[in-house]
Nucleic acid binder design. Structure first.
Lengths: 306, 306
DNA sequence: ATGTCTTAATCACTATTTTTAATCAAAGAA
DNA sequence: TTCTTTGATTAAAAATAGTGATTAAGACAT
């Protein structure tokens, strides 16, 4: 019935070749000789009965078909690695490496606390942290480069397991006069031109803030976009404008300038925080535990606040 | 970085062993000797560093952990088989074997037409049909035993790709006097005790019909449940009761008794028909084509009807 | 008790596959 | 030119998979 399936090692070599686009470097990275890698690819092509790369005497390119095969091969290797890891840590489900990714508007304010709590509650887990954009983290999650992502929801269509771990309220900060104005009448359109400062496009926080406050009007928003929360605050401060901050950043005291006002926004303005992992992962128990820890963390901050 | 992954062949042997629960039979089914299979399992256990089966001198049982490994191994083998199939039929995306499953209240009325249209529109596809319950078909889909399922929606939580292909109206048929009564006043509670006949539990049609008509009242429903639509009709006929039929069955003339009335139910009483396939499949183009064919089929019947 | 089955594990051996080191030919670069 | 870098090729070595025969241990009938 089922046919002659390719060798997993060969699929790994294929992935390395795709990554390095060079036989020698791919071979080095795989700790095998160049000829091993070369013949593995030939063997794969023979076995699958289709051309994966187009050879051009000196160099090569992947065929469109070859790229599809790479994608699928990656899925297979990820799944098998999951199996292997699962077995290696059987008996200690709350152990092993945990590669966790988060976005720049969460990571600095949540992960230090999380790391500390993990060390207490999950002493056998080795935590590896990674900070990147939502988009990149999703790719890394799919490719098995990280195990869990902590993101601001909602996240574009995906097929991961998702667990909501809490809400993170929005705050408005900046020039006291402007803040007071808005505090009395929460209509942002009364603000001066270019007085709202935002993070650059790739940060989902801007999106959330804009949609939460109905300030799509480009005139209000300053055309220069900051690349981190700290520069964002400094910009708003320097130019006497306002900006939006998530509660977890506020709690960590990112607003230290004395002449800056800070107001919590209405209760319905918040972002949801969620944990994501591969549906196929075999470590759901650990991830659920971690999501509980994060939930507790967010709750504690909230209680502490009130 | 990534470890020493198990051999796919070994995983296949493990699946065979799980299926047959016997080394000799599993070895035969895998076309290898018993010693090969035995050492493959040992090798796997050594490589994964965990016990998969508990040996009891003469026989064995899978450990709970071993069963988890089997599940994951099945995923891996399915994915790799998809890869292999995809390559084998590269260039002819509308070719190859198509193993399609459907439920007993759809299959007999839809699949003959579908088979005919497939032969015309997809001459290079070899269609294999399979009839079973929703639950079993979902398992078979997950395990790669079939490629697509045509089911009545909604289907319990799942992680398959789903495409709605049409609506199938409900009809009521049976004793003319009862049907007339209901026709004038669509309250089913006026019907005599035990006058509503249904299919047995495992057919989702009953569920849909019951929830569509609000006849949860057990008194109305006859305690004997039919196991197919034709026996269902005969039961309703013989006992002068009524029953519900899907339009596709009606269109195929399942109600031939002269003294049986047949009425279409209100427009909002229908079941949705959907195609499901593995999200991981590499043949989405084919499946979308097939779902289009089914959509057309259901539409044509509808037009033909009106 | 005794012999016969059936079970999975083990052993010595062979066949196959994978990997290697060394070499080759082609294309650029210095 | 000469040197380097590219991937392919070769033959030999190493690793792995597979085989048949054998073993040990329980099940079961006589």
């Amino acid at each position: 019935m089922s046919a002659n399936l390719p060798n997993l090692k060969h699929l790994q070599y294929l992935l390395a070749l795709y990554q390095y686009q060079n036989f020698n470097r791919a071979a080095d990275a795989s700790f095998v000789s160049q000829s091993t890698l070369s013949s593995a690819i030939l063997k794969l092509e023979e076995q699958l009965r289709c051309q994966l790369i187009e050879r051009d005497h000196k160099s090569f390119v992947f065929t469109p078909h070859g790229e599809e095969v790479v994608k699928k091969a990656r899925q297979i290797i990820v799944a098998t690695t999951e199996l292997s890891d699962y077995c290696r840590h059987y008996g200690t489900p709350f152990g092993g490496n945990l590669r966790l990714g988060s976005i720049p508007t969460i990571a600095p304010y949540l992960l230090t606390d999380l790391a500390e709590i993990c060390q207490q509650q999950l002493p056998d887990v080795s935590l590896y942290l990674r900070e990147d954009t939502t988009e990149n983290l999703m790719r890394m999650l799919a490719d098995g480069e990280i195990d869990v992502a902590i993101l601001a929801l909602p996240v574009p269509q995906h097929s991961f397991q998702q667990k909501v771990v809490g809400r993170d309220a929005f705050y408005i900060t900046g020039n006291s006069a402007l803040i007071n104005k808005v505090k009395q009448d929460p209509d942002y359109h009364q603000l001066p031109q270019h007085s709202i400062f935002l993070l650059s496009q790739e940060h989902c926080l801007s999106e959330h803030a804009v949609s939460a406050c109905n300030v799509e009007d480009q005139g209000l928003i300053h055309p220069f976009y900051a690349s981190s929360l700290t520069t964002l605050i400094q910009m708003a401060h320097y130019h006497k404008g306002v900006t939006f901050l998530p509660q977890m950043a506020v709690d960590k005291g990112v607003v230290s300038q004395k002449d800056m006002a800070l107001e919590k926004m209405p209760d319905d303005m918040y972002r949801e925080i969620g944990l994501l992992w591969r549906t196929t992962s075999m470590r759901q128990r650990l991830f659920l535990k971690v999501s509980q820890l994060v939930t507790d963390l967010l709750d504690i901050e909230k209680i502490h606040k009130s």
